[in-house]
């Protein structure tokens, strides 16, 4: 595998008295698909939010492609998310009043691409994820599987280097879940994007190249540990 793209060291984050992260360290390498597993409430979503620069950790450092994310302003981090990251969530991520096509085009438009061009590229991605027929429908009128594929298209449309997927199949049945995972991993491998895949389902995690486990706010990364031991 290639070089480390996103490195988090000793992240700590508390919400009130509960510590969501208690010294978590993890490394995401370019182009790899990394499953983040763990029981619910273990802090895996918080870890994802921190890695993506949505939530600043209370302490610890995150480095992305040589830049220290934790030292950047909110505006810069937002800009970075627009240009380099993509996101897929379990539910509620598609803007209900925008058509599927407009939803996919949205990240491009936020990044300043003109509407026509953004929608052309969005349409191509919808085609790649085999949901071109729902382009002009509202998210409320398409099936969960179709909606999630639209979300995958949206996460990839800007050509991100990292896609963060938080339980992307959580709301789907097995078959649709499989389909979304196949399409997501294929598309990610085609474009060379790394995927940080938060899931509690082993079958979903099995699509990843490797997995780390978060328990009680600490990341158990056997690879990192064995590397440490070797070193």
């Amino acid at each position: 595998m290639s070089t480390a793209l996103l490195v988090a060291t000793d992240l700590r984050k508390s919400y009130g008295p509960t510590a969501a992260l208690a010294g978590a360290s993890v490394t995401v390498r370019a182009g790899e698909i990394l499953a983040v597993m763990g029981p619910s409430g273990s802090g895996k979503s918080t870890l994802l939010h921190c890695l993506a620069g949505i939530v600043p950790p209370d302490s610890g450092t995150i480095t992305y492609a040589g830049r220290e994310l934790t030292a950047m302003s909110d505006v810069d981090r937002s800009a970075l998310r627009r240009s380099d990251f993509g996101f897929i969530f379990q539910f509620g991520q598609l803007i209900p009043e925008l058509t599927c096509l407009e939803n996919v085009a949205l990240p491009l438009r936020l990044a300043g691409v003109r509407r026509r061009e953004a929608e052309r590229r969005a349409r191509a991605w919808l085609a790649q994820l085999e949901v071109e027929d729902v382009a002009n429908k509202l998210p409320g009128t398409v099936s969960g599987g179709q909606g999630q594929r639209v979300a995958v298209a949206r996460s990839l449309v800007t050509g991100p280097r990292v896609v963060f997927a938080d339980e992307p199949t959580g709301a789907l049945d097995s078959l649709n879940g499989e389909k979304v995972m196949v399409l997501l991993t294929q598309a990610a491998r085609d474009t060379g994007a790394a995927v940080v895949l938060v899931t509690h389902e082993p079958r979903v995690a099995a699509y990843a190249d490797r997995e780390v486990v978060v328990r009680d706010g600490v990341v158990h990364d056997r690879l990192a540990q064995s590397l440490e031991r070797a070193a």
Partner: peptide
């Protein structure tokens, strides 16, 4: 005991990845 389970999970996932 968690360690044992982690080790086992890694092994399981390795096989599952292969199957996938």
């Amino acid at each position: 005991a968690a360690e044992i389970l982690d080790v086992q999970r890694t092994e399981h996932l390795r096989l599952m990845r292969e199957l996938t």
